[in-house]
Design a protein around this nucleic acid. Structure first.
Lengths: 225, 225
DNA sequence: CTATGTGAAGAACTTCACAGCT
DNA sequence: AGCTGTGAAGTTCTTCACATAG
């Protein structure tokens, strides 16, 4: 096939495929069919095959996909063969919770700096890091040799300013947990994780008599039904 | 217009419009144009007008939209005129962080029960609630008169079982933070909030030379660029 | 003259269905 | 025979462009 641009929706599903493949690999499974893998991830076989076809031809007709090979290919595609450096800004309740999540490091996301503006928190040790003053964000990020991804866990009121600082410090990707729509220049990638929004979406569907639009599993990755 | 089914993507954007409208209302703004509102939410005017047109005709041509009226209409559409009862399962780090988030209550989501399976946590007071044993999930939920939305903040390994219990207890909407793809019957609405997935998506875009696919703001609500 | 509301065109994504390998 | 890979058809969402109303 002429390699075409990978759809955004495919990108959003690849991590789900990868997660299940890793689980299979741990169990010692070596081959899997599109049907089985799709089912575990809440899609259908055609979707999965189409998704994978954007990355290349890794399957064996009549057999299925080699689990190890798929893991390698998806990891490569997602840029997970290298380590990314992450900073978290906002050490209220959510920040430390994320910091404590062991999954990050295992998946190649290394938290290298944490920030807050509260003097009571600055200097405090959390995990194996010390909380820096957000005022010095740029300098601290320079000192650790740059950061790839910034996570914002501040209150909404501070989020835009923090985003600006992160961008000023050269960060190109932001994951925002604060309940505001951030404005970022177009070269910066932004993902929003938004609790109230999610609840409000659920609220909408709860008010409808019954499943008239399909329940949406993960963002664009809607489950079949 | 003949009222057609509201697209899922529109539903996902309504909370963002609502949030900004509330901010405007607090500032005393009474009228807003599709252009201004769209800009603050990271969409374009045509999109916004189309979205609102699914709910009805609330604008005044040549003038704009009445902020108060829009707030009422969107709230009504999203089912935010009533209170929803919420239970959180998993009082590790994330659960308490969510519990402490004041936004919930204000937006009509009332947390009425919290659960864990760790005996050291059961019986402990958190906020103004006491942690219940997840084993008694169904009974506790009955005792509080039913729950509308279940939030799962357990480790991945426990999440499916908890989901099954929640469904067994009559819950119709689940917000899952655990990094697994849950299987739920089709009458249950599921939304997934997934940290590693979000980071991996950012990772993908970081490996690309530059903004070749548009950075996706909030799920389907992609920003213009 | 300004800003909404909306058919129609266009783009993006999903599903179908079958050809092509093993 | 069995399962992948993929054009083509179908569906959903977005953008355009202009009629319509104040």
């Amino acid at each position: 096939m002429k390699r075409k641009k990978i759809p955004q929706t495919t990108i959003a599903r690849l991590p789900l495929y990868l997660r299940h493949l890793l689980k299979l690999a741990r169990k010692g499974v070596r081959i899997i069919s599109s049907y089985e893998l799709a089912e575990h991830v809440g899609t259908n076989a055609a979707q999965l095959r189409k998704d994978l076809s954007y990355l290349g031809e890794f399957g064996t007709r009549g057999v299925g996909y080699d689990v190890g090979e798929l893991i390698r290919q998806i990891s490569k595609c997602l840029g997970l063969t290298r380590e990314w450096k992450v900073a978290i800004v906002g050490m209220g309740k959510l920040g430390p919770a994320l910091l404590g999540y062991k999954g990050f490091e295992q998946e190649g996301f290394k938290i290298v700096a944490i920030f807050d503006k509260n003097p009571k928190k600055i200097g405090k040790k959390m995990g194996n890091l010390v909380v820096s003053d957000v005022t010095n964000l740029k300098e601290v990020i320079e000192k650790v040799g740059g950061v790839d991804i910034g996570i914002i866990t501040t209150p909404a009121s501070a989020a835009q300013k923090v985003a600006d600082q992160l961008i000023e410090a050269g960060i190109r990707a932001i994951l925002n947990f604060a309940p505001v729509t951030l404005e970022v220049p177009s070269h910066v990638f932004l993902r929003q994780v938004d609790l109230s929004t999610e609840l409000q979406i659920l609220s909408y569907y709860l008010t409808r008599p019954f499943k008239f639009p399909p329940p949406c599993g993960y963002c664009e990755a809607n489950r079949d039904l």
